[in-house]
Amino acid sequence: MAETQMSADGLKSLARYMDQFEDKESAIIKVLYEAQHIFGYLSNDVMLFIAEKMDIPAAKIFGVVSFYSYFTTTPRGRCQIKACMGTACFVRGSEKVVSEFEKQLNIKRGQTSDDLKYSLDVLRCVGACGLAPVIVVNDKVYGKATAADVSKIINEIQG
């Protein structure tokens, strides 16, 4: 499971990962990806650590992090529920599915539950339009989802 704190081990492993790159500037995204994998999210301290270690301005690092919706600067839940809002999913009713998740989990899209159990996000096309609307929970894909499926999905990911 991803760590939510900036542990010494995590930093050491991130530093080792960064060392392999000659061209630091073009490695920014890979490094941030790895950092998010290690820590679960990109805290200011983690971004500063990367900036200093790679000698890249912190503003630039933050610019990249804030540009890509993949990167998150807040801790995420253990179950990361992501609903596709691409065109196909949207016209086939993903909005209704997301609203149902919001209602049942009592969090809004983009938020994480206080117990760090769930986070709910919307994203653009995941490339599985044939299965629209698509819900992705951690690495598992649920296709042709409806509002009625929501409680089933929640039960399943809990177990």
């Binding site: 200011n44 503003a59 610019g63 804030s66 540009f67």
Partner: peptide
């Protein structure tokens, strides 16, 4: 700020309509 002065405080942040120029965090 970045190329001439190398103070490196300002960067483009966010994307789309939310885009803004500002310091880290």
């Amino acid at each position: 700020c970045n190329q001439v002065q190398t103070v490196n405080v300002l960067s483009g942040l966010n994307r789309g309509f939310e885009t803004v120029v500002g310091p880290a965090f």
